[in-house]
Design a protein around this nucleic acid. Structure first.
Length: 434
RNA sequence: UCCCCAGUAGCUCAGUUGGCAGAGCAGGUGACUGUUAAUCACCGGGUCGCAUGUUCGAGUCAUGCCUGGGGAGCCA
């Protein structure tokens, strides 16, 4: 309907006349020349309108179009070393689809966080947000490619669940017909364990919900999580999978977006280049010693808090894997270490540079009797977990898996201060619009 | 749930001891043939978050509320 070319393909049309459809990002003028920055979603190109090349009406209009006017520009593609893109469009004609009904709220100057969050739908048009969303897309694709390339099957977990998966987190409640209350999922893991008994290697990838009243830069109430689960895998195998997975995602994104990360987001990409196996591994007990030596009061059995986490993570130049946490701190389904029953066979991956926990996982309890006892000990409703116990009743095997939060991963790769910029429309405690 | 901070023009902010409501940017009009957040001249733009109180007088002081931001706990 509208034959045109895209900015990212412009080099192939050097010297030819083409038409571009896009939005006016910015405009500058210098007497008989007007410079229009036109954004089309694939890139931004400077379109030069010379007074001698167009009608007086078009020339005048070109200097009076507001930001975000949707338009078509037709002209000749010219190589130009002064352009960051390397090419410019020498404009012959220009057609406006629609002028903004009112002034676009987001200018090219400074804005505050609150204002930008209210304008999130408009904010997405800014160059920085475009880069972040492209990186997010690549992270998602790298995740899927990693598992698909290793024989995993995607098994979608339900969003409505009858009860807490872990019994601890605060959940969002929704009415569910005559069955009473349902809850929005906080993890697909238990379902993946059933899936792994059917298909061996599985993963789920979808939105997850936490109703905790967390107000920090690392929290959203709705976030995306990928959760692989593998039959016949122990903690060591799980940790190998974690490090291969994380480095695959980081290196794939780096390969694809290095320039954007460096120029638009000012990310130190050398730090990302170092994210290759093997990752350092320390036990929880060793981590406590490191934290104590750094002067933080902490004893064995305490949770590793935010500051303490940074102490451990900043001792290394790549993600660090902390394993074998006190069993009491972990969810009921973790298998205990046969060599030391005080600790669970769990492992968290802490991202460098203070980005915190991006992965949590471990080996699951595969013994029916032990798991039944754990459910009772945690005071969980046995009936709700009958189906889950079936996973152990019929040919139980050692199995392990983990979950990675996509937004924390994207925030780390992009070097962002807050996870709210890593998801198109963030949902937080105090914000549900736009 | 708890602790800390902020709310003044469309946006970012300044506002002295309590004494006429300000700047930059954005917007409008015009000048300029190479601008990169262009520059220059001129113009319009206000429920100082809301309420109550103190005072001759409150953007400024006090109390309460609302909204947002940061952090703690919890987690990915």
């Amino acid at each position: 309907m509208y034959p045109s070319v895209y900015v990212d393909q412009i080099a192939a049309h050097e010297g030819k006349e083409v038409t571009l459809h896009g939005w006016l990002h910015g405009r500058r003028s210098s007497g008989k020349l007007h410079f229009l920055q036109v954004r089309d979603g694939t890139g931004t190109i400077q379109c030069v309108v010379f007074k001698g090349n167009v009608s007086p009406e078009v020339f005048h209009e070109a200097d009076h179009l507001p930001q975000e006017t949707s338009l078509s520009v037709t002209g000749t593609v010219k190589k130009d070393t002064r352009s960051p893109l390397g090419f410019e469009l020498d404009v012959r004609s220009l057609a406006v689809f629609a002028r903004p009904a009112r002034e676009f709220p987001i200018g090219h100057k400074e804005h505050g966080v609150a204002f930008l969050m209210e304008q999130r739908h408009n904010w997405l048009r800014s160059p920085r947000q475009q880069v972040i969303l492209r990186v997010r897309h690549s992270v998602v694709k790298a995740i899927r490619d990693f598992f698909d390339g290793r024989g995993f099957t995607l098994v979608d977990a339900p969003v409505f669940t009858p009860a807490a998966c872990e019994g601890t987190s605060t959940l969002f409640e929704v009415p569910y017909f005559d069955l009473g209350k349902a809850y929005l999922t906080q993890s697909g893991q238990l379902y993946m364990e059933a899936g792994a008994m059917a298909l061996g290697k599985v993963y789920c990838f979808g939105p997850t919900f936490r109703a905790e009243k967390s107000k920090t830069r690392r929290h959203l109430t709705e976030f995306w999580m990928v959760e692989p689960e593998v039959a016949y895998m122990d903690l060591d195998g799980d940790m190998e999978l974690m490090e291969q997975f994380v480095s695959h995602v980081v290196q794939t994104v780096l390969q694809k977006h290095e320039t954007e990360l460096r120029t638009v987001l000012e990310r130190d990409v050398e730090k990302l280049r170092k994210v290759v196996p093997p990752f350092p591994r320390i036990t929880y007990t060793e981590a406590v010693e490191v934290i104590q030596k750094a002067g933080h009061p902490m004893k064995w059995g305490d949770d590793i808090g935010g500051d303490e986490e940074t102490v451990v993570a900043s001792a290394y130049d790549r993600p660090v894997m902390v394993h074998r946490y006190p069993a009491e701190m972990k969810a009921f389904y973790f298998k205990k270490d046969p060599g030391d029953p005080k600790v669970a066979l769990g492992c968290d991956v802490l991202a460098p540079e203070g980005y915190g926990e991006i992965i949590g996982g471990g080996q699951r309890e595969d013994d029916l009797a032990v798991l039944e006892a754990a459910i009772a000990q945690h005071g969980l409703p046995r009936e709700a977990f009958e189906w889950y116990l079936d996973v152990r009743r019929y040919g139980s095997v050692p199995h392990a898996g983990f979950g990675m939060g996509v937004e924390r991963c994207v925030a780390w790769i992009c070097g962002l201060h807050h996870v709210r910029e890593t998801i198109p429309f963030p949902r937080m405690m105090e914000r549900i619009t736009p």
